[in-house]
């Protein structure tokens, strides 16, 4: 299935929840995740399944003024 991740298209072989997606992307630490412009609380990461066509944004804090 295909999703859009941070503005770029990504093909996934199997359906994944957010914990699995983050692990696949080797992302850890403090992150926030939006799916189709809805924030997914961290407590739901392990149960929220990403679906084909989803628009996923993963963000973090970086340097800024």
């Amino acid at each position: 299935m295909q999703i859009t991740l941070n503005g770029e298209s990504l093909v996934l072989e199997n359906s994944v929840n957010i914990v699995q997606l983050l692990s696949k992307l080797e992302l850890s630490g403090r992150l926030a995740v939006e799916v189709n412009q809805h924030i997914i609380p961290r407590s739901l990461f392990s149960t929220y399944e990403i679906e084909s066509g989803d628009n996923v944004e993963i963000v973090e804090a970086i340097g800024g003024g």
Binding site: L5, N6, G7, E8, L25, E26, L27, G29, R30, L31, A32, E57, I58, V59, E60, A61, I62, G63, G64, G65
Partner: peptide, 30 residues
Amino acid sequence: ITVAIRRSNIGQNPDEPNLLDVISPEKYTI
């Protein structure tokens, strides 16, 4: 301490420290 919110870099520098590891939200008001 101010921070910006931006997309995580996918597939780049997985070992780069997270800013909030350097500036702990327990110690500073982010």
